[in-house]
Design a protein around this nucleic acid. Sequence first.
RNA 1: GCCCUCGUAGCUCAGUAGGAUAGAGCAUCGGUUUCCUAAACCGAGUGCCACAGGUUCGAUUCCUGUCGGGGGUACCA
Length: 598
Amino acid sequence: MLQNKFKSEFAQLASKAFQATFANKYKETGDETVFSASYILENIEKPKDPTKGRFAFPVFRYGKLLGDNPPSIAATIAETINQTESKLIKITSIAGFINIETDFTVEASETIIDAISNDGKYGSSDAGNGKKILVEYSSPNIAKPFGIGHIRTTILGNSLRRIFLKIGYDTIGVNYLGDWGTQFGKMIVAYKKWAKPELDGKETVSDLLEMYVRFHDEAEENEQLETDARSEFKKLEQGDNENKALWEKFRKISIDEFDRVYKIMGIDFDWVTGEAFLNDKMESTIEAFEKANLVSQSEGATIVDLHDEQLPPVLLRKGDGATLYLTRDLSGFLYRAKEYKFDEMLYVVAVNQSVHFKQMFKALSMLEDAQSVSENDKMSTKGKHVEFGMIKFGDKMMSTRKGHIIFLEDVINEASKLAKQKIEEKTPDLENIDEVALQIGLGAIFYSQMSVRRQKDVNFKWEEVLSFEGETGPYLQYTHARLCSLMRNYTGELNADIDFALLDNREEKRIVELVADFPQAIDDAARMYEPNMIANHLIELAAAFNKFYQRKDKNGKTDKIISDNKELSKARIVLVKAVQIVINEGLYLLGIKAPKAM
RNA sequence: GCCCUCGUAGCUCAGUAGGAUAGAGCAUCGGUUUCCUAAACCGAGUGCCACAGGUUCGAUUCCUGUCGGGGGUACCA
């Protein structure tokens, strides 16, 4: 990264400056590490207020060591550095901070050339080379519709997959369908009781949902239904033909439906699997725990006691012998560990399942301990629950069981309908209106999920998801369309001979910095499993650009990007191109399409 | 009861490897277009950063406790 060039230049010079100016004290302290270039490099920070400087280095910790006050130290070091006539950086100091300004022409030219020459690859890195990461996300339940409740895992996971690919990981996006479990007992009971013969073979997911909701309604009055459901599921697990046929039917209806919705949304997976896939792997999982002497019987169930006051035991088998979700997840982990030898396994699942994952990782760790797996070969430490907050609707939690659900597709339709109205009003000549309207509608929905840190609970509000103004997906898309429009309008030459020094106003400078910092935003997002950090960065960049786009000159007239001043226009248009590349790529990482016009 | 998580402007939220006077959007009010896409831009106001301690030269950020919201706490997922 370009930043490192400036930072290490500073670190070298500052380290020397400390030696030169505080030679005696420097020796006395006996602590030379804090004066080393590498230590200084590590502690360079970015001021929250960008007008303070490109980078900053606080010297407070040197106060005691050097027996001087921080402002004075900062001033002395700054002065010394400035005497060395560095071409790359210029130093000022204030109140204990050394502020670093970079040579703007160097930063602008290198950043813009880097972005343009790499195009879509700008911001890519090899940080993850040789490493494999699995990202499990979306994972809808068969026989249930795709509700708004699944939106966060789907959008977050899709984005994380793209982010890790971007930084060089061998990335495998996994859709782990909920295609097994007691809920199928419920569905089977419901179907056998209430299926409409005339619908046979034509049932849709809504029909399935109707039965599911009816089951829960009636089960409140009639406990027998729950018992029946458990026994139907057990029959299914034992291979009962009729139940198996029903299960396959439900599964097919659902998967076809999911595929259709994923296609609309532009969500990709590398491996679509499910719980049922693990059916023949369950026995060996339970055996492994038995061999490790970790299994016991309790209240009729087969359990693994985690010996942890905070964690309930893992139930491998229920009292009736059937397996549970956790049993299947354990099997899934062991299978993936063996087949993929991953370096990380991310589970993008809501926070209300955190105990489940704690139990799972603890059980796996105990298993590996019992098997004397060496610390280096342990897989149990590589699982990570990437948890996110719940979606509420009108202060109520969503609940499929109560039929309390907003269909994702309704949200998509509503959003694109609104987008279409807006296009017809603003740019009626646009060619592919329906396509762009969908992209914008999805942009609004996707962004609404990315604009908040994942840990937070979110309230689903139509007016928020359908908002196209301010900090929204459509704002970013609009900015992108504007950038594309500028490039279409530019008819001048675009040779390599560009005078970057012409980009000298504050707005242009800010834009260059944000373009330069884009790779860092990607790394941060990956480190924190937090696409929100990319979304924030894009908003900042788009805002900086829009400000520049509409800035006025001394006479109060718009200072246009494309003007009679050919050299200036050329320098500005390459900046425009660089911004367009970053926004396009950033939106891609969030799973959002960037139309060229809207 | 215990565990996890969140608590920043009227509303929704940034501020995530502790730093310099805490920032955006929405909403409200006012302004900008003889058109490089006004889905934009400019201007105006608002904060005991839930509360109380602690660590630190420095805490919205880390630690402890309290209060409040949400989630979870063996045969659902």
